[in-house]
Simulated scan of single mutants.
Amino acid sequence: MEYLRNVKMILRCFEMASGLRINFHKSCVVKVGKGRHSEDCWADVLKCQKAMLTVTYLGLPLGARPSAKVFWDPVINRIEKRLAPWKRKFLNKGERLTLIKTSPL
C-alpha cells in the first residue's frame, strides 16, 4: 500500500512541476505479468479504471504482436480515411467522375 501511495505522490509531483494535470478518470491500470498486488487495489488507490491487454495507446495496440498483419489493420484504415479527402483534391475531372460513379451511397 505504501508503494501505491508513493506512486500517486510522484504523479502529483509531476503535475506540480510540469503544470500538466493527470486525468485519473480517463487513465487505466493494466496488469502485466504476475505480481503481488492486484489491479483492483491499484485502481482503487489511484481512482482510475482497470483494463486488460490489448490496450490502445496513442493509436497503437499494446500487448499485441506487431509482426501480425491484424495489428496494423486499424492503423492502415485510419491513414486511408485521412488520405481520402486529400487525394480527391488532386484528381482531374475524369478521375473525379469515375470516383463518384464507383463510390457507394
Rank of each mutant, 00 (worst) to 15 (best):
K8E: 07
E15I: 01
E80M: 14
L11C: 10
T54C: 12
E2S: 02
Q49Y: 01
N23H: 11
R82S: 03
R88N: 03
K26W: 04
S103E: 13
A43L: 04
V75Y: 13
D73N: 09
M16C: 15
A64N: 02
V29L: 02
R36L: 05
S38C: 08
T102I: 08
A68D: 13
T54G: 15
Y57T: 04
A17S: 14
V30D: 02
L53Y: 14
V32G: 02
S18R: 01
R96E: 15
G59P: 13
I10V: 05
S18E: 02
G19W: 05
I76N: 04
L99H: 13
K26I: 00
R12N: 05
L53D: 03
K93D: 12
P85V: 00
E95Y: 10
L83Q: 06
G59S: 04
R82W: 00
F14I: 01
I79G: 03
A68H: 14
R88E: 01
F14C: 05
I22H: 02
S67L: 09
W86H: 12
R88L: 08
A68G: 07
N6D: 07
W72I: 00
R82H: 12
C28V: 08
G35N: 06
R78D: 08
M9F: 04
A43H: 02
A84M: 10
E2W: 01
E2C: 01
T98C: 12
I10Q: 09
K26G: 05
L46Q: 00
P74N: 06
R36Q: 11
E95A: 07
L58R: 00
V32D: 05
P74C: 05
Q49D: 00
K34C: 09
L11W: 14
E39M: 02
K31V: 03
M52D: 11
N23C: 10
N77V: 13
I76G: 10
V7Y: 01
M1H: 15
F14M: 03
K87E: 12
L105G: 13
T56Q: 12
N23P: 10
F14Q: 04
P61L: 04
K81F: 10
L4M: 10
K50G: 02
S103C: 09
L11Q: 13
G19P: 05
P74A: 11
W86P: 15
S18W: 07
F24T: 06
K50A: 01
M52C: 15
P74I: 00
V29R: 05
C28N: 11
E15F: 08
R21G: 05
Q49E: 06
K81N: 15
R21S: 09
F90H: 09
C48Q: 03
K87S: 14
R82G: 06
R78G: 08
A17D: 09
M9W: 15
K101W: 03
S27N: 11
D44H: 08
H25M: 08
R96L: 15
W86Y: 07
C48F: 06
N92F: 11
L4V: 08
E2L: 12
L91V: 03
L58A: 07
R36D: 09
